[in-house]
Design a protein around this nucleic acid. Sequence first.
DNA 1: CCCGGCCTCACCCGCAGGGGTGTAGACAGC
DNA 2: GCTGTCTACACCCCTGCGGGTGAGGCCGGG
Lengths: 231, 231
Amino acid sequence: MTPSTSATVDSAPATPVRVALLNDYEVVAHGLAAMMRRYDHQIEVVELSAGLGVHEHVDVALYDTFAQVQGDRVDLEDLVADGDIGHVVVFSWNVAPTVVRAALDRGVHGYLSKTLPAGQLVECILAIARGRVIVDTGEDDRIAGGDWPGREEGLTAREAEVLALITQGLSNNDIAERTGVSINSVKSYIRSAYRRIGVTTRPTAILWGIEHGFRPDHMRVRNPHIPGSSR
Amino acid sequence: MTPSTSATVDSAPATPVRVALLNDYEVVAHGLAAMMRRYDHQIEVVELSAGLGVHEHVDVALYDTFAQVQGDRVDLEDLVADGDIGHVVVFSWNVAPTVVRAALDRGVHGYLSKTLPAGQLVECILAIARGRVIVDTGEDDRIAGGDWPGREEGLTAREAEVLALITQGLSNNDIAERTGVSINSVKSYIRSAYRRIGVTTRPTAILWGIEHGFRPDHMRVRNPHIPGSSR
DNA sequence: CCCGGCCTCACCCGCAGGGGTGTAGACAGC
DNA sequence: GCTGTCTACACCCCTGCGGGTGAGGCCGGG
């Protein structure tokens, strides 16, 4: 695994940091929100949004890359250039140094691994809100939390992401590039995903995906109600 | 081309024959209706319906096989057994003798080629309504009329049907069997259809189809208004 | 410790799909 | 007559996909 760069944090700010959670799959954005509910005195989730940019000023826009396709809708540059966003943070599995470097070069102020536990994720967000630039690639391979389409059907996060990209029409090679894993790993995920959902061909997988929430949503939720939140 | 069996007709009945037009694609059902509008003193289109069976008594149910997949929704046997249907007529491109024989064995009272001009089609329907059993396989390869999804985008009827079946997830071999043409012909239609809609892979073709009306509809229209009809 | 699950990767192999080329017949329009 | 379009079919070739097999590391639970 790539070397980890951990963040150090001073103290909690007096005012919660306003955060927008960005991803084209509503269930992913909601899963992120649920992940942070224990930290709602430090983090105020004010918006869940797809690739629509943000609607109001936020301190941090946390951009979850689940099944995002480059060039689709809002790109990182658009987010970075958006005057309503204080800091753009990428939240991704793909922590290859070249990808991280490319994102930083485009002006993001944080690049965080999906394997970070919630507490560490929140610490990084707070530090970034204070002006730090944080790269934290995590310690292991397993996603720490969150939600994704197909979870109820038993798909792992990786299987779901690969299936979501299949549903968007990408080839195996495209998916390997997008996710940063090898073509062989992509095929392995496809195999296991197909077995799990009971299909054997790509066309039937696409149709299954379309019928089971794997089409990207285009939604915005303002001041979302987060179950279990103290507010 | 297969030998043609032409119908002979006595005289128009005093009361219009009540006809339901059955196909899963609304545009196909509407196209059939438009095809018959010149004959609305003889033919009364009382229903456009997908694979939902008929809702009221009709003399003839004209079942257009465009992109129908066996086993989907209503089968021929269901239609033949439906007490509300006087006679079931199949309207299809696939006029292979084995297919025609199979349909007749299942109780349909007519099997008509899509290459029949509207007038001949109507004559056959009238004769069937009077109790005749008619098989008319037509004289040439070109569809005479009607409408289909993708027509506005320049797809021929054959290309559209193949694309509709692709959009339903069928393999090339499945499509060859469904349509009664060879695998090589299917590939030719795929090639030309892809060129026309600007895609190069099956997944992108499926997604294109879904965005352009190639998903089967599940609708019923009662007493449809047919443009140009005298009633 | 063992096992199962998840992530990751490799390699082998056969087949489906899609690119190309060509042929033929029917029909309509110029 | 020629050309273009539509339907139909053939054959060649290559690549992508999906089935199989196997391997390794990490983590959590019994």
